[in-house]
Design a protein around this nucleic acid. Structure first.
Lengths: 204, 204
DNA sequence: CGGTAAAATGACCGATGGGTCATTTTACTA
DNA sequence: TAGTAAAATGACCCATCGGTCATTTTACCG
Protein backbone atom coordinates (compact mmCIF):
# COMPACT_ATOMS: atom_id res chain seq x y z
CA UNK A 1 0.00 0.00 0.00
CA UNK A 2 1.83 3.07 -1.29
CA UNK A 3 2.16 6.08 0.95
CA UNK A 4 3.56 9.31 -0.42
CA UNK A 5 4.11 7.49 -3.68
CA UNK A 6 6.68 5.16 -2.20
CA UNK A 7 6.09 1.66 -1.01
CA UNK A 8 8.20 0.07 1.67
CA UNK A 9 9.89 -1.90 -1.07
CA UNK A 10 10.81 1.28 -2.84
CA UNK A 11 12.47 2.72 0.22
CA UNK A 12 14.56 -0.37 0.84
CA UNK A 13 15.49 -0.55 -2.78
CA UNK A 14 16.59 3.05 -2.80
CA UNK A 15 18.74 2.57 0.26
CA UNK A 16 20.41 -0.62 -0.93
CA UNK A 17 20.91 0.79 -4.36
CA UNK A 18 22.68 3.83 -3.03
CA UNK A 19 24.94 1.76 -0.77
CA UNK A 20 25.79 -0.67 -3.51
CA UNK A 21 26.49 1.90 -6.17
CA UNK A 22 28.67 3.96 -3.90
CA UNK A 23 30.74 0.91 -3.03
CA UNK A 24 30.79 -0.19 -6.65
CA UNK A 25 31.97 3.16 -7.90
CA UNK A 26 34.86 3.22 -5.50
CA UNK A 27 35.94 -0.35 -6.16
CA UNK A 28 35.59 -0.28 -9.93
CA UNK A 29 37.62 2.90 -9.99
CA UNK A 30 40.27 1.46 -7.75
CA UNK A 31 40.69 -1.96 -9.26
CA UNK A 32 38.97 -1.90 -12.61
CA UNK A 33 35.99 -3.88 -13.78
CA UNK A 34 37.51 -7.32 -13.96
CA UNK A 35 39.52 -7.23 -10.78
CA UNK A 36 36.54 -6.13 -8.75
CA UNK A 37 34.47 -9.09 -7.60
CA UNK A 38 30.81 -9.05 -6.76
CA UNK A 39 31.88 -10.34 -3.37
CA UNK A 40 34.01 -7.20 -2.93
CA UNK A 41 31.14 -4.90 -3.74
CA UNK A 42 28.76 -6.74 -1.46
CA UNK A 43 31.25 -6.67 1.42
CA UNK A 44 31.93 -2.97 0.96
CA UNK A 45 28.21 -2.27 0.96
CA UNK A 46 27.76 -4.39 4.07
CA UNK A 47 25.62 -7.10 2.48
CA UNK A 48 26.08 -10.65 1.23
CA UNK A 49 26.77 -11.49 -2.37
CA UNK A 50 23.31 -12.87 -3.00
CA UNK A 51 21.76 -9.55 -2.02
CA UNK A 52 23.45 -7.82 -4.91
CA UNK A 53 21.52 -10.08 -7.24
CA UNK A 54 18.25 -9.04 -5.66
CA UNK A 55 18.82 -5.56 -7.06
CA UNK A 56 20.87 -6.11 -10.18
CA UNK A 57 20.82 -8.96 -12.62
CA UNK A 58 24.57 -9.06 -13.20
CA UNK A 59 27.88 -7.49 -12.32
CA UNK A 60 27.81 -5.60 -15.58
CA UNK A 61 24.47 -4.09 -14.67
CA UNK A 62 25.90 -2.83 -11.39
CA UNK A 63 28.70 -1.19 -13.29
CA UNK A 64 26.41 0.59 -15.68
CA UNK A 65 24.16 1.75 -12.90
CA UNK A 66 27.13 3.21 -11.02
CA UNK A 67 28.31 4.96 -14.16
CA UNK A 68 24.88 6.30 -14.95
CA UNK A 69 24.49 7.68 -11.47
CA UNK A 70 27.64 9.77 -11.73
CA UNK A 71 26.92 11.03 -15.21
CA UNK A 72 23.47 12.13 -14.19
CA UNK A 73 24.83 14.04 -11.22
CA UNK A 74 27.41 15.78 -13.36
CA UNK A 75 24.90 16.64 -16.02
CA UNK A 76 22.54 18.15 -13.49
CA UNK A 77 25.33 20.36 -12.21
CA UNK A 78 26.14 21.49 -15.72
CA UNK A 79 22.53 22.28 -16.57
CA UNK A 80 21.94 24.24 -13.39
CA UNK A 81 25.15 26.21 -13.52
CA UNK A 82 24.91 27.13 -17.19
CA UNK A 83 21.44 28.55 -16.74
CA UNK A 84 22.91 30.99 -14.24
CA UNK A 85 25.29 32.44 -16.81
CA UNK A 86 24.27 34.93 -19.46
CA UNK A 87 26.79 35.17 -22.27
CA UNK A 88 28.06 32.28 -24.35
CA UNK A 89 31.57 33.18 -23.20
CA UNK A 90 30.63 32.84 -19.55
CA UNK A 91 28.76 29.63 -20.27
CA UNK A 92 31.70 28.08 -22.04
CA UNK A 93 33.95 28.99 -19.17
CA UNK A 94 31.48 27.61 -16.67
CA UNK A 95 31.21 24.38 -18.61
CA UNK A 96 34.96 23.93 -18.52
CA UNK A 97 35.19 24.84 -14.85
CA UNK A 98 32.43 22.53 -13.71
CA UNK A 99 33.76 19.48 -15.45
CA UNK A 100 37.30 19.97 -14.25
CA UNK A 101 36.17 20.66 -10.71
CA UNK A 102 33.72 17.78 -10.69
CA UNK A 103 36.35 15.26 -11.63
CA UNK A 104 38.90 16.89 -9.37
CA UNK A 105 36.65 16.06 -6.44
CA UNK A 106 35.44 12.77 -7.88
CA UNK A 107 38.66 11.33 -9.12
CA UNK A 108 37.51 7.79 -8.62
CA UNK A 109 34.47 8.39 -10.77
CA UNK A 110 36.52 9.75 -13.61
CA UNK A 111 38.40 6.50 -13.79
CA UNK A 112 35.16 4.68 -14.49
CA UNK A 113 33.86 7.34 -16.80
CA UNK A 114 36.99 7.36 -18.86
CA UNK A 115 37.61 3.65 -19.10
CA UNK A 116 34.03 2.94 -20.03
CA UNK A 117 34.41 5.25 -22.96
CA UNK A 118 37.46 3.17 -23.79
CA UNK A 119 35.73 -0.15 -23.63
CA UNK A 120 32.74 1.29 -25.41
CA UNK A 121 35.14 1.97 -28.21
CA UNK A 122 36.22 -1.62 -28.29
CA UNK A 123 32.78 -3.10 -28.08
CA UNK A 124 30.29 -0.57 -29.40
CA UNK A 125 27.44 -3.04 -29.42
CA UNK A 126 27.79 -3.81 -25.74
CA UNK A 127 27.49 -0.28 -24.45
CA UNK A 128 23.82 0.41 -23.71
CA UNK A 129 22.44 3.08 -25.97
CA UNK A 130 21.36 4.94 -22.88
CA UNK A 131 24.93 5.34 -21.64
CA UNK A 132 26.17 6.40 -25.04
CA UNK A 133 23.45 9.00 -25.17
CA UNK A 134 24.51 10.39 -21.82
CA UNK A 135 28.05 10.91 -23.04
CA UNK A 136 26.75 12.71 -26.08
CA UNK A 137 24.29 14.75 -24.10
CA UNK A 138 27.01 16.82 -22.46
CA UNK A 139 28.56 17.71 -25.76
CA UNK A 140 25.12 18.69 -27.02
CA UNK A 141 24.62 21.13 -24.19
CA UNK A 142 27.88 22.78 -25.09
CA UNK A 143 27.02 22.67 -28.76
CA UNK A 144 23.83 24.62 -28.09
CA UNK A 145 25.86 27.27 -26.29
CA UNK A 146 28.26 27.56 -29.19
CA UNK A 147 25.39 27.79 -31.63
CA UNK A 148 23.96 30.60 -29.54
CA UNK A 149 27.31 32.39 -29.66
CA UNK A 150 27.52 31.99 -33.40
CA UNK A 151 24.11 33.57 -33.81
CA UNK A 152 25.11 36.37 -31.49
CA UNK A 153 28.32 36.88 -33.49
CA UNK A 154 30.58 36.42 -30.48
CA UNK A 155 31.71 33.09 -31.86
CA UNK A 156 32.89 32.73 -35.41
CA UNK A 157 31.24 30.48 -37.99
CA UNK A 158 32.45 27.07 -36.98
CA UNK A 159 31.11 23.51 -36.94
CA UNK A 160 29.50 23.71 -33.53
CA UNK A 161 29.13 19.94 -33.08
CA UNK A 162 32.76 19.19 -33.82
CA UNK A 163 33.96 22.12 -31.77
CA UNK A 164 31.88 21.02 -28.82
CA UNK A 165 33.45 17.60 -28.86
CA UNK A 166 36.88 19.14 -29.28
CA UNK A 167 36.39 21.28 -26.21
CA UNK A 168 35.24 18.25 -24.26
CA UNK A 169 38.42 16.49 -25.35
CA UNK A 170 40.58 19.33 -24.12
CA UNK A 171 38.86 19.20 -20.79
CA UNK A 172 39.27 15.46 -20.55
CA UNK A 173 42.92 15.80 -21.42
CA UNK A 174 43.56 18.23 -18.61
CA UNK A 175 41.80 15.99 -16.15
CA UNK A 176 43.88 13.03 -17.24
CA UNK A 177 47.02 15.05 -16.76
CA UNK A 178 45.95 16.00 -13.30
CA UNK A 179 45.09 12.44 -12.37
CA UNK A 180 48.42 11.17 -13.60
CA UNK A 181 50.19 13.88 -11.70
CA UNK A 182 51.56 15.40 -14.87
CA UNK A 183 49.98 18.75 -14.16
CA UNK A 184 51.53 20.75 -11.38
CA UNK A 185 49.33 23.81 -11.74
CA UNK A 186 46.39 24.54 -9.51
CA UNK A 187 42.89 23.89 -10.78
CA UNK A 188 42.04 27.50 -11.53
CA UNK A 189 45.15 27.89 -13.60
CA UNK A 190 44.28 24.84 -15.68
CA UNK A 191 40.74 26.06 -16.15
CA UNK A 192 42.04 29.37 -17.42
CA UNK A 193 44.49 27.68 -19.70
CA UNK A 194 41.82 25.59 -21.37
CA UNK A 195 39.39 28.45 -21.64
CA UNK A 196 42.04 30.69 -23.11
CA UNK A 197 42.99 28.12 -25.73
CA UNK A 198 39.38 27.41 -26.57
CA UNK A 199 38.27 30.98 -26.76
CA UNK A 200 41.06 31.97 -29.06
CA UNK A 201 40.09 29.03 -31.23
CA UNK A 202 36.41 29.85 -31.48
CA UNK A 203 35.98 33.55 -30.80
CA UNK A 204 34.81 35.73 -33.66
CA UNK B 1 77.11 -20.27 -34.64
CA UNK B 2 75.95 -16.76 -35.60
CA UNK B 3 75.96 -15.77 -39.26
CA UNK B 4 75.25 -12.21 -40.26
CA UNK B 5 74.68 -11.41 -36.63
CA UNK B 6 71.61 -13.57 -36.44
CA UNK B 7 71.48 -17.07 -35.13
CA UNK B 8 68.89 -19.56 -36.27
CA UNK B 9 67.17 -18.99 -32.98
CA UNK B 10 66.95 -15.27 -33.61
CA UNK B 11 65.29 -15.78 -36.95
CA UNK B 12 62.69 -18.13 -35.57
CA UNK B 13 62.05 -15.84 -32.66
CA UNK B 14 61.58 -12.88 -34.93
CA UNK B 15 59.12 -14.75 -37.11
CA UNK B 16 57.07 -16.14 -34.25
CA UNK B 17 57.10 -12.83 -32.46
CA UNK B 18 55.75 -11.02 -35.48
CA UNK B 19 53.01 -13.60 -36.02
CA UNK B 20 51.99 -13.58 -32.40
CA UNK B 21 51.94 -9.84 -31.97
CA UNK B 22 49.97 -9.31 -35.13
CA UNK B 23 47.35 -11.80 -33.99
CA UNK B 24 47.41 -10.37 -30.48
CA UNK B 25 46.90 -6.82 -31.67
CA UNK B 26 43.87 -7.76 -33.70
CA UNK B 27 42.28 -9.87 -30.99
CA UNK B 28 42.93 -7.52 -28.09
CA UNK B 29 41.47 -4.70 -30.14
CA UNK B 30 38.44 -6.72 -31.09
CA UNK B 31 37.57 -8.29 -27.78
CA UNK B 32 39.55 -6.46 -25.13
CA UNK B 33 42.26 -7.79 -22.87
CA UNK B 34 40.18 -10.00 -20.61
CA UNK B 35 37.97 -11.56 -23.23
CA UNK B 36 40.91 -12.53 -25.37
CA UNK B 37 42.37 -15.86 -24.31
CA UNK B 38 45.90 -17.02 -24.84
CA UNK B 39 44.35 -19.92 -26.72
CA UNK B 40 42.75 -17.43 -29.12
CA UNK B 41 46.02 -15.69 -29.80
CA UNK B 42 47.86 -18.94 -30.33
CA UNK B 43 45.22 -20.24 -32.71
CA UNK B 44 45.18 -17.01 -34.70
CA UNK B 45 48.96 -17.16 -34.99
CA UNK B 46 48.79 -20.80 -36.04
CA UNK B 47 50.57 -22.28 -33.03
CA UNK B 48 49.63 -24.11 -29.85
CA UNK B 49 49.12 -22.35 -26.56
CA UNK B 50 52.34 -23.64 -25.05
CA UNK B 51 54.31 -22.03 -27.84
CA UNK B 52 53.18 -18.59 -26.75
CA UNK B 53 54.93 -19.20 -23.44
CA UNK B 54 58.18 -20.00 -25.21
CA UNK B 55 58.32 -16.38 -26.30
CA UNK B 56 56.46 -14.48 -23.62
CA UNK B 57 56.24 -15.12 -19.93
CA UNK B 58 52.59 -14.13 -19.57
CA UNK B 59 49.52 -12.90 -21.38
CA UNK B 60 50.16 -9.43 -20.02
CA UNK B 61 53.61 -9.46 -21.55
CA UNK B 62 52.16 -10.29 -24.95
CA UNK B 63 49.82 -7.36 -24.61
CA UNK B 64 52.54 -4.91 -23.75
CA UNK B 65 54.73 -6.17 -26.55
CA UNK B 66 51.91 -5.70 -29.05
CA UNK B 67 51.28 -2.21 -27.76
CA UNK B 68 54.93 -1.29 -27.80
CA UNK B 69 55.27 -2.49 -31.37
CA UNK B 70 52.55 -0.17 -32.62
CA UNK B 71 53.73 2.83 -30.66
CA UNK B 72 57.24 2.41 -31.96
CA UNK B 73 56.01 2.26 -35.53
CA UNK B 74 53.93 5.38 -35.09
CA UNK B 75 56.74 7.24 -33.41
CA UNK B 76 59.12 6.39 -36.21
CA UNK B 77 56.69 7.77 -38.74
CA UNK B 78 56.34 10.97 -36.75
CA UNK B 79 60.07 11.45 -36.37
CA UNK B 80 60.77 10.86 -40.03
CA UNK B 81 57.98 13.01 -41.35
CA UNK B 82 58.63 15.96 -39.05
CA UNK B 83 62.24 16.13 -40.08
CA UNK B 84 61.06 16.69 -43.63
CA UNK B 85 59.15 19.81 -42.66
CA UNK B 86 60.76 23.18 -42.11
CA UNK B 87 58.53 25.57 -40.23
CA UNK B 88 56.90 24.90 -36.87
CA UNK B 89 53.56 25.49 -38.52
CA UNK B 90 54.17 22.78 -41.09
CA UNK B 91 55.49 20.47 -38.41
CA UNK B 92 52.43 20.92 -36.24
CA UNK B 93 50.20 20.22 -39.19
CA UNK B 94 52.24 17.16 -40.12
CA UNK B 95 52.06 15.87 -36.57
CA UNK B 96 48.28 16.13 -36.59
CA UNK B 97 47.97 14.58 -40.02
CA UNK B 98 50.22 11.61 -39.29
CA UNK B 99 48.48 10.62 -36.11
CA UNK B 100 45.01 10.88 -37.55
CA UNK B 101 46.01 8.98 -40.67
CA UNK B 102 47.90 6.33 -38.75
CA UNK B 103 44.95 5.48 -36.59
CA UNK B 104 42.58 5.77 -39.50
CA UNK B 105 44.43 2.90 -41.15
CA UNK B 106 45.16 1.07 -37.91
CA UNK B 107 41.83 1.33 -36.21
CA UNK B 108 42.33 -1.88 -34.30
CA UNK B 109 45.55 -0.62 -32.86
CA UNK B 110 43.98 2.55 -31.61
CA UNK B 111 41.58 0.53 -29.52
CA UNK B 112 44.51 -0.99 -27.67
CA UNK B 113 46.40 2.27 -27.48
CA UNK B 114 43.44 4.09 -26.06
CA UNK B 115 42.22 1.54 -23.57
CA UNK B 116 45.69 0.95 -22.20
CA UNK B 117 45.89 4.61 -21.42
CA UNK B 118 42.60 4.13 -19.65
CA UNK B 119 43.69 1.23 -17.55
CA UNK B 120 47.01 2.90 -16.90
CA UNK B 121 44.93 5.60 -15.32
CA UNK B 122 43.26 3.16 -13.02
CA UNK B 123 46.37 1.27 -12.08
CA UNK B 124 49.37 3.52 -12.53
CA UNK B 125 51.71 1.12 -10.83
CA UNK B 126 50.96 -1.68 -13.24
CA UNK B 127 51.85 0.13 -16.42
CA UNK B 128 55.51 -0.45 -17.19
CA UNK B 129 57.49 2.73 -17.05
CA UNK B 130 58.67 2.02 -20.55
CA UNK B 131 55.15 2.17 -21.96
CA UNK B 132 54.33 5.33 -20.05
CA UNK B 133 57.47 6.92 -21.44
CA UNK B 134 56.44 6.05 -24.96
CA UNK B 135 53.13 7.82 -24.54
CA UNK B 136 54.91 10.87 -23.22
CA UNK B 137 57.54 10.75 -25.91
CA UNK B 138 55.12 11.79 -28.61
CA UNK B 139 53.97 14.80 -26.68
CA UNK B 140 57.61 15.72 -26.12
CA UNK B 141 58.34 15.71 -29.81
CA UNK B 142 55.48 18.12 -30.35
CA UNK B 143 56.55 20.17 -27.36
CA UNK B 144 59.96 20.67 -28.92
CA UNK B 145 58.33 21.91 -32.10
CA UNK B 146 56.20 24.39 -30.17
CA UNK B 147 59.23 25.57 -28.24
CA UNK B 148 60.98 26.14 -31.52
CA UNK B 149 58.03 28.18 -32.75
CA UNK B 150 58.00 30.25 -29.61
CA UNK B 151 61.65 31.11 -30.07
CA UNK B 152 61.01 31.95 -33.70
CA UNK B 153 58.09 34.17 -32.64
CA UNK B 154 55.59 32.33 -34.83
CA UNK B 155 53.99 30.88 -31.74
CA UNK B 156 53.00 33.05 -28.82
CA UNK B 157 54.38 32.64 -25.31
CA UNK B 158 52.55 29.62 -24.03
CA UNK B 159 53.21 26.66 -21.76
CA UNK B 160 54.60 24.38 -24.43
CA UNK B 161 54.26 21.19 -22.41
CA UNK B 162 50.61 21.72 -21.58
CA UNK B 163 49.82 22.89 -25.08
CA UNK B 164 51.49 19.83 -26.56
CA UNK B 165 49.35 17.52 -24.49
CA UNK B 166 46.28 19.57 -25.33
CA UNK B 167 46.93 19.19 -29.02
CA UNK B 168 47.40 15.47 -28.58
CA UNK B 169 44.06 15.37 -26.82
CA UNK B 170 42.34 17.14 -29.66
CA UNK B 171 43.79 14.65 -32.07
CA UNK B 172 42.72 11.75 -29.95
CA UNK B 173 39.25 13.17 -29.70
CA UNK B 174 38.87 13.38 -33.44
CA UNK B 175 40.05 9.82 -33.84
CA UNK B 176 37.56 8.63 -31.26
CA UNK B 177 34.78 10.42 -33.09
CA UNK B 178 35.79 8.77 -36.32
CA UNK B 179 35.97 5.34 -34.74
CA UNK B 180 32.55 5.72 -33.19
CA UNK B 181 31.16 6.88 -36.47
CA UNK B 182 30.26 10.27 -35.08
CA UNK B 183 32.36 12.10 -37.62
CA UNK B 184 31.01 12.15 -41.13
CA UNK B 185 33.69 14.33 -42.63
CA UNK B 186 36.59 12.99 -44.66
CA UNK B 187 39.99 12.66 -43.04
CA UNK B 188 41.51 15.74 -44.67
CA UNK B 189 38.66 17.87 -43.48
CA UNK B 190 39.11 16.72 -39.91
CA UNK B 191 42.84 17.31 -40.09
CA UNK B 192 42.23 20.85 -41.27
CA UNK B 193 39.68 21.45 -38.57
CA UNK B 194 42.05 20.41 -35.81
CA UNK B 195 44.94 22.32 -37.25
CA UNK B 196 42.84 25.41 -37.68
CA UNK B 197 41.62 25.30 -34.09
CA UNK B 198 45.10 24.62 -32.76
CA UNK B 199 46.84 27.25 -34.78
CA UNK B 200 44.41 29.95 -33.78
CA UNK B 201 44.99 28.92 -30.20
CA UNK B 202 48.75 29.01 -30.29
CA UNK B 203 49.80 31.33 -33.10
CA UNK B 204 51.54 34.59 -32.18
C1' DC C 1 70.07 -42.75 -42.28
C1' DG C 2 70.25 -42.57 -37.18
C1' DG C 3 71.03 -39.70 -33.42
C1' DT C 4 70.15 -35.61 -30.88
C1' DA C 5 68.82 -31.25 -29.46
C1' DA C 6 65.70 -27.60 -30.24
C1' DA C 7 60.98 -26.48 -30.93
C1' DA C 8 56.29 -27.30 -30.54
C1' DT C 9 52.38 -29.46 -28.64
C1' DG C 10 48.01 -29.86 -25.98
C1' DA C 11 46.18 -32.50 -22.05
C1' DC C 12 46.03 -31.23 -17.64
C1' DC C 13 46.00 -28.61 -13.14
C1' DG C 14 44.40 -25.26 -9.95
C1' DA C 15 42.47 -20.96 -8.93
C1' DT C 16 39.09 -17.81 -9.62
C1' DG C 17 34.68 -15.78 -9.51
C1' DG C 18 29.90 -15.09 -11.55
C1' DG C 19 25.63 -16.61 -10.54
C1' DT C 20 22.05 -19.79 -7.89
C1' DC C 21 18.99 -21.28 -4.41
C1' DA C 22 17.74 -23.83 -0.12
C1' DT C 23 17.84 -22.02 4.29
C1' DT C 24 17.73 -18.45 7.82
C1' DT C 25 16.68 -13.89 9.56
C1' DT C 26 13.97 -9.86 9.82
C1' DA C 27 9.89 -7.05 9.86
C1' DC C 28 5.32 -6.50 9.95
C1' DT C 29 0.48 -7.77 11.16
C1' DA C 30 -3.47 -9.53 13.45
C1' DT D 1 3.19 -13.39 20.57
C1' DA D 2 2.42 -16.39 16.79
C1' DG D 3 2.24 -16.49 11.91
C1' DT D 4 3.87 -15.20 7.49
C1' DA D 5 5.90 -13.08 3.73
C1' DA D 6 9.66 -10.40 2.31
C1' DA D 7 14.53 -9.89 2.57
C1' DA D 8 19.00 -11.51 3.18
C1' DT D 9 22.39 -15.00 3.39
C1' DG D 10 26.54 -17.67 1.92
C1' DA D 11 27.74 -22.45 0.73
C1' DC D 12 27.89 -24.35 -3.46
C1' DC D 13 28.19 -25.26 -8.50
C1' DC D 14 30.64 -25.07 -12.60
C1' DA D 15 32.52 -22.80 -16.63
C1' DT D 16 36.59 -20.44 -17.77
C1' DC D 17 41.32 -19.74 -18.49
C1' DG D 18 46.30 -18.76 -17.35
C1' DG D 19 50.08 -21.31 -16.98
C1' DT D 20 52.89 -26.03 -16.82
C1' DC D 21 55.33 -29.89 -18.46
C1' DA D 22 55.78 -34.73 -20.12
C1' DT D 23 55.59 -36.13 -24.66
C1' DT D 24 55.97 -35.67 -29.65
C1' DT D 25 57.61 -33.50 -33.85
C1' DT D 26 60.91 -31.15 -36.52
C1' DA D 27 65.41 -29.76 -38.16
C1' DC D 28 70.01 -30.40 -38.56
C1' DC D 29 74.41 -32.92 -38.88
C1' DG D 30 77.98 -36.46 -39.22
Amino acid sequence: MPILGKTRKDVIKEFRTAELLEAARRLFAEKGFHSTTVEDIAAAAGVAKGTVYLYYRSKQEVYWAALERGITELENQIQTRLEAEQTPEAKVRAFIAIKIRYFETNRDFFRIYFSELGSGLSHPAQMPAQIEQMYLQQARILEAVLQQGIQGKTIREIRADTAAVAISDLIRGIIVQRLLGWSTKDVESDISFVFDLVWRGVAA
